[in-house]
């Protein structure tokens, strides 16, 4: 099908299109370099690994959308804690699967409540609140999880690594999750309120939105998703490790920015989270394939993030 002028124009106005175009370009370069070898495998791997970034990216997106200054820096610590706690509870058997899952969600719930309480009670910027709480959460994870070498229960390990016609099962589930959250964002009172608060908090309050309740729910949502990521990551990588959350601090923020969500708040973009997560993974794959060293890979990753945010540009804050 050939897109007609106006339709094509409308497509290019979508903020998420760039992340998918980037993904396509990076994939084409990689594949042309390998002369078509492993073209499908690369996509499968990208879907597997991007899944975890998408899970936390969605939570970060909701938080960032509630307006300038809102951010969740406790995601990595939360991932480490949830991973460690659930692996210990499940103890490598399927018997405690449900309990472990519930405990993981409990971790996320508590971290979210704690984050919001600090913001609300101490009246401090979210960046400081979530940073302080991440100190405590990470310390708990370290003290609790030191020397922990428990394999994930077989069911969890199978579920997180299962393939359906070359597509990771977990990726399909998370595509469903993204779709669900997209509906929540655009079709529910809660989602509309998140967008309204991000556009203009005062107007939202005057319009009768319970701003604080919405912010509370948003930090809890981000906590829950980070815990879910910790659980899935532990299952996928054969056990929890204390530093497995580290890379998701930058990743969760980067995919929100690259995916076309407004950093100033008020405009969110769910498809972009998937596009940006795939892009981030394929970018590293491409640099690997081209034979770049670890140092060069890091530098390129950083520069591309800065280039994207510079191109997207910041927006004037609304008052």
């Amino acid at each position: 099908m050939i897109l007609k002028g106006p339709a094509l124009e409308r497509l290019f106005k979508k903020p998420w299109i760039w992340s998918y175009l980037g993904t396509l370009i990076v994939w084409l370069i990689t594949v042309s370099f390998t002369k078509g070898q492993g073209a499908g495998d690369i996509i499968t791997a990208a879907l597997s690994f991007a899944t975890f970034t998408v899970i936390v990216g969605l939570g970060q997106m909701f938080v960032i959308t509630t307006g300038p200054g809102n951010i969740d820096l406790s995601i990595p610590a939360n991932i480490a804690l949830s991973g460690a706690v659930t692996m210990k509870i499940m103890d490598g058997t399927n018997d405690m699967l449900v309990v472990g899952f519930l405990v993981a969600m409990g971790c996320g719930l508590l971290v979210g409540i704690f984050n919001y309480s600090l913001i609300r009670i101490l009246k401090i910027p979210p960046i400081i609140a979530t940073l302080s709480s991440s100190f405590l959460v990470l310390s708990t994870a370290i003290a609790y999880g030191r020397g922990l070498k428990v394999k994930p229960p077989p069911f969890l390990a199978d579920f997180t690594t299962e393939m359906v016609y070359g597509v990771p099962m977990l990726a399909l589930v998370v595509i469903g999750l993204a779709f669900g959250l997209s509906v929540v964002l655009h079709r529910t009172l809660y989602g509309r309120s998140v967008l309204a608060i991000g556009q203009n908090m005062r107007a939202a309050r005057l319009a009768g939105i319970n701003v604080e309740r919405i912010r509370f729910a948003t930090y809890v949502l981000s906590g829950l998703l980070a815990s879910l990521c910790g659980l899935a990551l532990a299952g996928f990588s054969g056990g929890a490790s204390l530093n497995m959350g580290e890379e998701y601090l930058l990743a969760s923020i980067a995919v929100v920015v690259i995916g076309g969500t407004s950093v100033a708040g008020g405009r969110a973009n769910v498809p972009g989270i998937w596009g940006a997560s795939l892009f981030m993974f394929l970018l590293v794959t491409m640099l690997n394939t081209l034979g770049a060293s670890g140092g060069v890979r890091l530098i390129m990753t950083g520069l591309i993030i800065i280039a994207v945010i510079t191109a997207a540009g910041g927006e004037k804050q609304q008052h």
Partner: peptide, 30 residues
């Protein structure tokens, strides 16, 4: 200058830079 000129969130720019600094360190002292 970049943060001011494009009115960018410093958090994102400096998070990106943290990768750049780290990469340079690894190149200088593997």
């Amino acid at each position: 200058a970049l943060v001011y000129w494009r009115n960018l969130p410093s958090i994102v720019v400096t998070l990106g830079m943290s990768f750049v600094w780290m990469g340079l360190s690894v190149l200088i002292l593997p």
